[in-house]
Structure formats: C-alpha cells, structure tokens
Simulated assay, not measured.
Amino acid sequence: MSKLIKLFTALILIAYPFLVGWSLSHGKLWEMSIALMILGIVRYWTGRNSPMLPLTYLAILAGGLSLVFKDQTWLKFYPVAMSLGSLSIFLLTLWRPPSMIERFARVFEPNLPESGVQWTRKVTMVWCGFFLINALIALYTVFFAPMKIWVLYNGFISYLLMGGLLVGEFILRKYQQRKH
C-alpha cells in the first residue's frame, strides 16, 4: 500500500503545474493550497528515510504560505523551491560523500569502481548546474510570465530537460563504463 501511495503522490507532483494552472484559473486557491499541504504530509509519512525528505517540507510551507497570505505566488514558487532544495541536497553530498548520483548508482551497482565514483561526482555537479538554471528560469516564470507560460515551463519543458539530462547521462555512463 505504501508503494501505491508513493506512486500516487509522485504522479500528483509531476502534474502539479497543470493542477495549479487549472485550480487558479477556476478560483480554487485555498483548495490547491490545502491539497499541497496534505500531499506534503503524506510524502513525509511515506518517505521518512529518503535523502530528498527536506523537499517535502517545502510543499507544506508553500501550501501554508499561500493559504495564510491568500496569494497564488507561493503555489507558483513551489517549483523554484524544489529546484533550490534539490540543488542544496546535491551540493551537500559533494561536501559529504557519497555524492547523490553515486548513491543512486550504488542501488544498481553496489561495487562501483573508483572511476565510477569520480564519474558520479562529476554528474552530481552537472545536476547542480541544472537545478540552479532551472530555478532561475522557474523564478522568472513566477513573476514575469503569464500562467500559460508558467505551466508550460514548469509542467513540461523542465521535465523534458530533466529527462534529456537523465537519458544523456545514462548513454554517456554506458560509454564511460565500456571505455574503462
């Protein structure tokens, strides 16, 4: 049951920009704010051991602030906070190894060679750059773009870029492994 709840919350978070766009265009600010807070609480209870747990607090905070201040900006700011939170977590693992990507890699390859450790460290740095750029673009859309552009970037383009980075890294990693 816990895996089903995790899957459901992940799908809701992926669809988040579309849900916000629809909710706000239909005057459902408080409903969306409460939904985001509930989603954060559910993720907290189902993911206590996740290294990404701090990002859960951002959902609760963004939902709470939009509810208290009756301001949609806090809901729109959530993707910015997610990118900055991810950036912080990934950066921290560069100072306190293993790097985030090494942690992910060791799930599939527990005996990662030293060349793999170095590779995953570099990839973690690339992800840090991605999260920084993504946060800046998402922040721009919060304040200077119409809702349609905010939804398009945060609900489609950023995911497309993230997917491209994942696939590109996977292909390069396989090439790197064959080379070594």
Rank of each mutant, 00 (worst) to 15 (best):
M1V: 15
K3H: 14
I5Q: 05
F8M: 15
F8C: 15
T9Q: 09
I12K: 05
L13R: 05
L13D: 05
L13A: 15
I14M: 12
A15I: 14
Y16N: 02
P17R: 01
L19W: 00
V20H: 01
V20N: 00
G21V: 01
G21H: 00
W22Q: 03
W22F: 09
L24I: 15
S25E: 10
G27V: 00
G27R: 06
K28E: 12
L29E: 05
E31R: 12
M32I: 14
I34L: 15
I34H: 05
M37K: 02
L39Q: 01
G40P: 01
I41T: 12
V42L: 13
R43G: 02
W45K: 13
W45G: 10
G47I: 03
R48H: 07
M52I: 08
L53W: 10
Y57W: 12
L58T: 05
L58W: 01
L58S: 06
G63A: 08
G64N: 05
G64H: 03
L65V: 09
L67F: 14
V68N: 06
F69S: 13
F69W: 14
F69N: 13
Q72M: 11
Q72I: 11
T73E: 10
W74A: 01
W74L: 04
L75S: 04
L75A: 03
L75F: 04
K76C: 06
F77N: 01
P79T: 06
P79N: 10
A81T: 06
S83N: 15
S83Y: 05
L84V: 10
L87K: 07
L87M: 14
S88G: 15
S88Y: 07
I89F: 01
F90W: 02
L92S: 14
R96F: 09
P98S: 08
S99H: 07
M100K: 02
I101C: 04
I101K: 04
E102D: 11
R103W: 00
F104Y: 10
A105G: 08
A105N: 03
V107H: 11
E109P: 07
N111W: 12
E114P: 09
E114A: 14
S115E: 14
G116W: 06
V117H: 09
V117Y: 03
Q118V: 12
T120Q: 02
R121K: 15
R121Q: 08
T124C: 05
M125C: 12
V126W: 04
V126E: 03
W127K: 04
C128H: 05
F130Q: 09
F131I: 10
L132K: 04
L136A: 15
I137T: 08
Y140F: 15
T141P: 00
V142I: 12
F143A: 08
F144E: 10
P146M: 11
M147V: 11
M147Y: 08
K148G: 03
I149D: 10
W150A: 00
V151R: 00
V151S: 00
L152S: 11
Y153L: 04
G155D: 07
G155R: 03
F156P: 03
I157C: 07
S158K: 08
S158R: 04
Y159C: 10
L160Q: 12
M162P: 01
L165H: 09
V167S: 12
E169G: 13
E169R: 10
L172F: 13
R173K: 15
Y175C: 07
Y175T: 11
Q176E: 12
Q176I: 14
R178C: 07
K179L: 14
H180K: 12
